[in-house]
């Protein structure tokens, strides 16, 4: 935790999300480095900070082979170094669309591991046996480590990618054609599965802790499509071919990454709010009971402290 002075914070609005969808971004300069807080309304407890964010700092290493810093302030808000912000990542992926595909391929494998681990947890999630509860909590920690290892690419930059794609399409297509084409890609495999199972309800969007979502430990999945075809591709590609060079470059980069970004983001939202949340809620109720502590008391401990006390 790092205490920051609120007078040093600069606040601005992003136009990629509507007002009520948390569109304020905070910026601060510390030790000659720029940090952004992309979701200032999300306050993470000490427990959630240690459970969910342990691997997030490694995203910079994976993308640019440089260490990146993230920290939580006194209000539990997450601050990421400039290289992992939506603005920086958008420009990076526009120049390096193949890097996004590398990430997407890794993500597909990461999620397979998460689902497999959760299936193991699911078999004994209601067990009251102490050893089983500890084992399940440790497996869930592994799930969170893998799941949140690319916060910037999955969550921060996603709205910007879709917004930039629409903006680019409007530079060489009329509004109706641009929207029709964009909507071809506003679709995700996991949404089809969620609709089939009837598990699409949303939760309060100002709380994004580990247990903000469902309390039913369910698992469902359908692998995202990284390459999404459209019947309109030929006609749009032919129009893009005569667009100015900068527009054309952005179009082809975004055409590659936007459909995948949407699939990956939707997948993340469902895994986070239905599956991870459903399992951790059941397990943490059992942890509270074992340690004879309230949820608030557990929220003020780190994951390591909880495991130590359980032993």
């Amino acid at each position: 935790m790092r205490t920051i002075n609120k007078d040093q914070i600069r606040s601005f609005k992003t136009n990629v999300r509507p007002e009520h969808k948390n569109n304020t971004i905070l910026e601060i300069k510390l030790d000659n480095k720029i940090f952004w807080c992309e979701r200032p309304l999300y306050n993470f407890t000490k427990f959630d900070q240690s459970l969910c964010y342990a691997n997030s700092k490694d995203e910079g290493k994976w993308l640019f082979n440089t260490e990146t810093i993230l920290f939580f302030d006194q209000l539990g808000r997450a601050w990421f170094q400039e290289e992992l912000t939506s603005k920086y990542l958008l420009n990076f992926y526009l120049k390096n669309p193949v890097m996004y595909l590398n990430f997407a391929a890794k993500r597909v494998n990461d999620i397979k591991k998460v689902i497999s681990l959760m299936k193991e947890v699911n078999k004994t999630v209601y067990s009251d046996n102490k050893e089983t509860i500890i084992a399940n909590l440790k497996k869930m920690k592994l799930c969170y480590d893998i799941f949140y290892s690319h916060m910037g690419s999955i969550f921060w930059v996603f709205d910007d990618i879709v917004h930039k794609f629409k903006e680019t399409l409007l530079k060489f297509l009329d509004k109706a054609e641009a929207n029709t084409y964009l909507c071809e890609f506003l679709t995700a495999e996991i949404t089809k599965e969620a609709l089939k199972l009837g598990v699409v309800e949303e939760y309060d969007n100002t709380d994004r802790g580990s247990s903000y979502g469902s309390d039913k430990p369910i698992i469902f999945h359908r692998e995202p499509k990284i390459f999404v075809e459209s019947k309109l591709d030929a006609q749009i590609f032919s129009k893009a071919a005569s667009a100015p060079e900068e527009v054309r470059k952005n179009f082809f980069a975004l055409r590659l990454i936007m459909p995948a970004a949407l699939q990956i983001n939707e997948e993340a939202q469902y895994i986070e709010s239905k599956m991870l949340s459903g399992h951790i809620k059941v397990i943490m109720k059992k942890v509270c009971k074992l340690l004879n502590k309230t949820k608030q008391e557990i929220d003020n401990m780190t994951y390591k402290e909880v495991i130590e006390e359980l032993k």
């Binding site: 990629v16 999300r17 509507p18 879709v162 964009l182 506003l186 699409v200």
Partner: peptide
């Protein structure tokens, strides 16, 4: 999203809120 499931047969949906990437928008598209 939960409100959208009751609108499966509606002609169109209009909202003063929401964005193109919000969950409900993606459900409507689906």
């Amino acid at each position: 999203t939960q409100n959208l499931l009751l609108l499966r047969d509606a002609g169109a949906i209009l909202s003063s809120t929401g964005g193109i990437t919000c969950h409900a928008a993606i459900i409507a598209r689906e």
